[in-house]
Nucleic acid binder design. Structure first.
Length: 357
DNA sequence: AAATGCATCAACCGCGGCATG
DNA sequence: ACATGCCGCGGTTGATGCATT
């Protein structure tokens, strides 16, 4: 049975609220409470439907509403709660005093979601997106692979143009690994250290500390995670001539002959959200050896203001400390810049992500 | 200065859940 | 058990302002 839309009644006003209407609504609710939204507009002398009144009150006129920019802490909370609750905006809003579900929803769609996408993270699943992140790196460096390999890489996208599941196999991972290994060699010559704004960076590994290296290695894990390969076989001996080395996944541990490290899974961090399943392994397993300890989770989830200097013990003898100073990343643009520079992640024109925006 | 594109956000729409008769 | 009505939620739209060309 259909229900008559509440605002289709004759004489009921729609659209933006006037100051007079606002005042009428405020005065009435202050005196009587909202009671039944259905009868409120008539009693308050408003030519609005109850639904419109309720929305106006809960999203705008309520006295306890906090206006203005979201703080880093609030943003962090939103992301973490969203990883647990999904698009349950009202549930998220219930944990953010003064913020409405509508406001949070808007902020998510206009800010956070886009930022996560730029970083190659699926804002729905909160897991790395192979099709966004991986191929962008590959495709941005066409010199790194042959035509045949490009054809293979296109399969990751589900090349038919339709909504096909990404094709990822151990063999493709191996190919990608080789490609990325080549990429590493190029990238290492370009950036042995990272300086971002006033954030301090103290790395010690030269080649292995480039951002590109981090991405590449992390991407392989993403592939593995998305493909549920389970066991990614170590490279065969004949791969050893590839100077860069490779990563593989063995019995729960990330192994590499790149830095001759065996990376044991990191102990649980203090982040207790669904990210543990996705980003934390990346940050802790990869960061020490291949990125010198940069904490991806800290950059994505914990905004700089709330992320104390992260100290991670790598499997090598190197201990690396990072201090991303919040004072230098206080604006929205700076947040974006901060993230994009760190990850050096650029979506090539070839890879259109607008559909996801 | 005008045109165009983009980002933001208040407000609307439709649906599902729940209460009530 | 079923019909009806209300409320709240999530998705979407459209107006507005700002930036860019």
């Amino acid at each position: 049975m259909g229900r008559a839309p509440c605002c289709e009644k004759n004489g009921l006003k729609k659209g933006p609220w006037t100051a007079e209407e606002d005042q009428k609504l405020i005065d009435y609710i202050r005196k009587h409470g909202h009671g039944s939204w259905r009868t409120l507009p008539k009693n308050a002398g408003l030519a609005r439907c109850g639904k419109s009144c309720r929305l106006r009150w809960t999203n705008y006129l309520r006295p306890d509403i906090k206006r203005g920019r979201f703080s880093f802490e609030e943003e962090e909370t939103i992301i973490q709660l969203h990883s647990i609750l999904g698009n349950k905006w009202s549930a998220i809003a219930a944990r953010l005093p003064g913020r409405t579900d509508n406001e949070i929803k808007n902020y998510w769609n206009t800010h956070i979601r886009k930022r996560l996408l730029r970083m190659g993270i699926d804002p729905v699943t909160h897991s790395p997106r192979l099709d966004l992140l991986d191929l962008s790196v590959l495709l941005a460096n066409p010199s790194l692979y042959s035509t045949a390999q490009l054809d293979v890489s296109r399969q990751f996208l589900g090349g038919g143009g339709g909504v096909e599941p990404p094709l990822v196999s151990s063999e493709l991972l191996r190919i990608a690994s080789n490609l990325l290994t080549s990429s590493n060699q190029n990238q290492c010559q370009q950036s042995d250290s990272i300086q971002l704004n006033n954030n301090s960076y103290q790395g010690s590994n030269s080649c292995a500390t480039s951002t590109a290296q981090f991405l590449n290695d992390a991407q392989l894990l993403m592939m593995q995670q998305q493909a549920n390969v389970g066991q990614f076989q170590p490279p065969a001996a004949h791969d050893d001539h590839q100077a860069g080395g490779m990563w593989w996944y063995d019995n729960g541990a990330i192994q590499s002959n790149f830095s001759e490290n065996l990376l044991a899974p990191a102990p649980a961090a203090n982040i207790t959200t669904g990210y543990e399943n996705h980003l934390e392994p990346l940050a802790h397993d990869f960061a020490p050896a291949c990125f010198g300890g940069y904490n991806l989770a800290a950059s994505v989830l914990s905004t700089p203001a709330s992320s104390p200097a992260t100290q991670l013990n790598s499997s090598s003898t190197t201990t690396t400390t990072y201090n991303f100073n919040s004072a230098t990343t206080s604006t929205e643009d700076e947040k974006d810049s901060y993230c994009s520079q760190l990850l050096k992640f650029q979506v090539p024109d070839l890879l259109d992500v607008s559909d996801f925006m």
